[in-house]
C-alpha cells in the first residue's frame, strides 16, 4: 500500500535496466506510491487535526460572525474575540458557565486518582515483578478479566451500590471507582519497568542488610521514577477524560460536575452559544495536549514495548 518505501541501500539494488523497457512495473509502482504517500500523509494530517483547529477557530469567533459565515476557515488575529473564554470560565452566579469550578473538580478527581493509584499500584507492581507468591498468575488473569467486561455492566451495580451507601454524588466515590478501573493497567505498565531493573542492585542492598521495604524505597522506586512519572501522567489523562461514571454519579449536583461532564451537559442546551462551549472545549483539551506532548516519548515507548511480541 502507500509508501512501503523500503529504500534499500542503493549499492545493493540492481540497476533497473532501463534499456529494454522504459516503464517497468517497479518504476511505475515506485512513482505511484511515492505520490500516494505524500497525499496520504497530508490527507491524514488534515483529517486528524481539522476538528481541533475548528474548535480553536470557533472559540475565538463571535457567534453572530459564525452564523453569518459558517464556512470561514481562517480568522485574522484582528478579529479574535476572547469573550467566549471569560464567559465560559466565569461562575454561573455572574452569568458565566462556571468552568473554573468544573476544572477544579476535574483536577481534584484526577490528582486524587493519580495519588491513590500509585499508592496501590507501586507495591503491587513490585510484588508481581519481583516476588514469588501464591496466586501471582491468578492475579494477572483477574486483571485481564476486568477488561473484557463492559464498563456499562459495572455501571448498574456501582450506581445502585453508591446510591445505597450515599456516596453517589461525591467526588471520593468517583475516585475510588476510577482507581479500581485503572490500577490493573498501572500495575502492568510499572511491572514492565521493574522487570528491566537489574535484580543484582537489590541483592547488593539485601546483603548490606536492607529490608524488603527498604529495598523498595531506596532502590527500586528511585530507579523507576521515569516509569512512575509516565504512569502518573497516563492515569491523569484517563481520569480527566472519563465520562460515563462522572455522568452516572455526579449529574444531579452542578457544583460537583467535572469539566467533561459539564461540557457534555451544557452542549445540549440551546441558550448557550456554541462559541462559548467551544472555548470550554479548548479548555478541556489543553491540559491533555500539553501533557501528551510533554510525555509523548515516555508514554509511547513504554506502551509499545509489549507490542513487538504480538
Amino acid at each position: 500500500m502507500t509508501g512501503t518505501q523500503v529504500s534499500p541501500p542503493r549499492s545493493v539494488r540492481p540497476d533497473p535496466a532501463p534499456a529494454r523497457r522504459r516503464w517497468s512495473r517497479d518504476d511505475v509502482e515506485n512513482r505511484v506510491f511515492a505520490v500516494l504517500r505524500v497525499v496520504v500523509i497530508v490527507g491524514l494530517l488534515i483529517v486528524t487535526l481539522f476538528p481541533f483547529y475548528y474548535t480553536a477557530l470557533l472559540s475565538v469567533r463571535p457567534l453572530d460572525r459564525v452564523l453569518q459565515d459558517p464556512g470561514a476557515l481562517w480568522v485574522g488575529p484582528g478579529e479574535w474575540d476572547l469573550g467566549s473564554y471569560s464567559r465560559v470560565l466565569a461562575p454561573s452566579a455572574s452569568g458565566g458557565q462556571g468552568f473554573l469550578v468544573f476544572m477544579g473538580n476535574s483536577a481534584l478527581v484526577a490528582l486524587g486518582t493519580v495519588a491513590l493509584t500509585l499508592l496501590i499500584a507501586l507495591p503491587g507492581a513490585y510484588a508481581v515483578s519481583r516476588l514469588q507468591f501464591f496466586g501471582r498468575r491468578q492475579v494477572s488473569v483477574l486483571f485481564l478479566a476486568v477488561y473484557l467486561f463492559p464498563n456499562i455492566l459495572l455501571a448498574v451495580p456501582l450506581f445502585v451500590f453508591f446510591t445505597r451507601i450515599g456516596l453517589r454524588g461525591s467526588l471520593v466515590g468517583l475516585v475510588i471507582v476510577y482507581v479500581s478501573q485503572i490500577v490493573a493497567v498501572s500495575i502492568y505498565m510499572l511491572r514492565n519497568y521493574f522487570d528491566t531493573v537489574p535484580v543484582s542492585l537489590e541483592e547488593a542492598a539485601a546483603i548490606d542488610g536492607c529490608s524488603r521495604l527498604g529495598i523498595m524505597r531506596r532502590i527500586s522506586i528511585p530507579l523507576a521514577i521515569p516509569a512512575i512519572v509516565a504512569n502518573a501522567l497516563f492515569v491523569f489523562m484517563i481520569a480527566w477524560n472519563e465520562f460515563l461514571f462522572a455522568l452516572l454519579f455526579l449529574i444531579e449536583d452542578r457544583d460537583r460536575w467535572t469539566v467533561s461532564l459539564g461540557l457534555s451537559q451544557l452542549a445540549g442546551s440551546i441558550e448557550i452559544p456554541t462559541t462559548v462551549l467551544m472555548a470550554g472545549s479548548v479548555i478541556v483539551t489543553i491540559p491533555i495536549i500539553a501533557i501528551f506532548f510533554a510525555s509523548e516519548r515516555l508514554l509511547t515507548e513504554g506502551l509499545t514495548a509489549g507490542a513487538e511480541k504480538g
Binding site: S129, F143, Y188, F234, G310
Partner: peptide
Amino acid sequence: MSVGAGLGAAPAAPARRSGSGGSSGPGRQ
C-alpha cells in the same frame, strides 16, 4: 470509564502470556 480506550491496556493481552514467571526475586537463588 474506558480505560480500555486508554493507551495502556493494549499490550496486556499479548504480553502477559509470555511475561509471567520469568523474573527472579533477590531471595530465590
